[in-house]
């Protein structure tokens, strides 16, 4: 025997991982990327692939459209802004929550982490519907304002409502990696800083924060990346005219049925997201 079984098992596990990646990540990506060079046509599927019986007949039309039309650039910039602000809000709130929990006695931490995750117990759509009910023109916020004799406010279908919903949904993803890093931190370092005359704020700024920076970057990206492609929350809470990338891709696939353009948008989004990931990889390798 002599280690033969574990090695076979190792190979099998590695092979499974590669098969998974090849079938469910690489292949669909290749299909999408290829489709971007196709041409839209009526029919099923509504696309002519870039090569057929006559060899290469692909076109760069969809890529050209992406670069020429301000509509898509605008959607990309709006998505970047929304995802950036959402991730930043989640990072700031999440850091405070994670540090608060990490400073509690160890036996009380699981309860509070559980409370952070509690929203997941209630369906995502239900949570968003609750925001709609809260913020709509005749919702309870506006009714309360009415009882106080104040003018009703336009709350739903605004950027503010969208941001509230995004932060609410993504906050737990920011808290977890930060908590994992902060709970493991060496408290002797903070004590040493205080002992050397640093005020509590200086201890935080010069010791706690810099040492948690890798976790902060990870938690920012963990929110930023899915937020870039978010479709449902903008649809339910956001302004209908402020088109985002996720919404644009959705519309090209299912409404205008321009699959090559949708594929080009999806590919461009992926490229946009690969950049911060590459930066993070570089940073974590250097450490």
């Amino acid at each position: 025997m002599g280690g033969g079984r574990p090695r076979a098992a190792r190979h099998l596990i590695r092979a499974l991982a590669w098969i998974w990646l090849a079938l469910l990540v690489a292949l669909p990506l290749a299909v999408v990327a290829t489709m971007g060079f196709g041409t839209a046509q009526p029919g099923i599927p509504p696309v002519r692939l870039p090569w057929g019986a006559e060899g290469w007949q692909g076109s760069l039309e969809s890529w050209a459209l992406l670069l020429e039309d301000d509509y898509y650039l605008g959607a990309a910039l709006r998505s970047l802004r929304l995802a950036g602000i959402t991730a930043l809000c989640c990072l700031v709130l999440g850091f405070a929550m994670a540090l608060g929990i990490a400073r509690m006695p160890a036996r009380r931490q699981p309860l509070w982490l559980g409370l952070v995750l509690a929203p997941f117990l209630c369906g995502f759509v239900l949570r968003m519907a609750a925001w709609v009910g809260t913020l709509r023109d005749a919702g309870w916020v506006n009714r309360m304002l009415g009882h106080l004799g104040l003018e009703p406010l336009r709350l739903l279908y605004t950027d503010a409502a969208l941001l509230v919903g995004m932060v609410h949904s993504y906050l737990p993803f920011a808290v977890l990696p930060l908590w994992a890093a902060l709970a493991r931190r060496d408290t002797a370092l903070e004590e040493a800083a205080a002992d050397l005359g640093a005020s509590p704020f200086t201890v935080f700024r010069s010791v706690t924060l810099p040492l948690a920076a890798p976790a902060a970057l990870a938690s920012f990206l963990l929110v930023f990346i899915p937020a870039m492609g978010e479709v449902v929350i903008p649809e339910l809470l956001g302004a209908p005219d402020a088109v985002l990338l996720g919404r644009a891709i959705w519309a090209e696939f299912f409404q205008t049925r321009d699959w090559p353009l949708a594929a080009v948008l999806a590919t461009a989004l992926l490229a946009l997201l690969a950049l911060p990931l590459a930066v993070q990889q570089r940073l974590s390798v250097r450490r």
Binding site: D186, A188, L189, E191, A192, A193, S206, V207, L211
Partner: peptide
């Protein structure tokens, strides 16, 4: 400190 607690 016993662990020295140097700022890494």
């Amino acid at each position: 400190f016993q662990s020295y607690a140097l700022f890494p």
